[in-house]
Design a protein around this nucleic acid. Structure first.
Lengths: 124, 124
DNA sequence: TAACTGTACTATTTGTGTTAGTACAGTTAT
DNA sequence: ATAACTGTACTAACACAAATAGTACAGTTA
């Protein structure tokens, strides 16, 4: 489940966004399922409610969740697919690091095997 | 040569560190070669001298450069090799992103080809 | 109606990066 | 010895963003 690293360079609200998106993609959270309320999640994670709210706002804005005043927040339909489309930017991220390592003289095969290794770990 | 992006999330001093390390690894800066002075580089990049100093301190602490009061800063011996060793953490970084994408259902081949593409771009 | 939801504010605190300025100490060349 | 350059070590101030704290309001549900 969602874990927050308070010392990461990544802002907490961003970690929450990514954590929830990951839970949706991996099926831990299903479409139409209700999320914990802002206050509830705030207490659970030991984070200020406003920080949770900021994360939920972003998820709502991107159509990943649907939030209704008084009703609660729910995973949107086709949320997983929307997230996957968004993930293509991460591929660019990998490309950038790879370029850096390429310039630094790291062998291409070393990266390839790192990728295969990561996939192998998941597939079990 | 070194270019600074003032709007990056990455701090300027960190960009300088990475930029100099890249120049060392690519051979633009050679071992024992003298770097521009702090004040000189400060004027060149339009950054505060303290910011340059912070970058140089880190490079010095890591044994990438050797700085002597009154003498100047020089690329350390075996600097390129030390940097390469340090770069192995970036491979872990790639692995982490790959795991994330794997869980998200992105095909393994998509990442592999991204890596190959990055290397192809460099090799020209 | 009561108890829950999300929403919308303002104010404050905190941390970090950056800038600014000054002073000091060692090296080098003249 | 002197001048002009080096790096080093401070303190202070500023800017910005993230995070916290607190309050109030509005809609939903049982």
């Amino acid at each position: 489940m969602l874990v927050i690293d308070k010392f990461s360079r990544k802002p907490i609200y961003e970690q929450i966004v990514e954590g929830i998106e990951r839970d949706i993609v991996t099926g831990i959270l299903r479409e139409r399922e209700q999320l914990p309320s802002i206050r509830e999640l705030s207490a659970l994670l030991g984070v200020n409610p406003n920080t949770i709210q900021k994360a939920f706002q972003e998820l709502d804005r991107n159509g990943i969740i649907v939030s209704g005043q008084g009703r609660g927040c729910f995973v949107a339909e086709r949320a997983a697919q929307k997230i996957k489309e968004k993930l293509s930017v991460k591929i660019t991220e990998i490309k950038n690091i790879a370029s850096e390592l390429a310039r630094a003289g790291i062998e291409e095969e070393k990266l390839i095997s790192a990728i295969r290794c990561a996939y192998a770990d998941i597939q079990k």
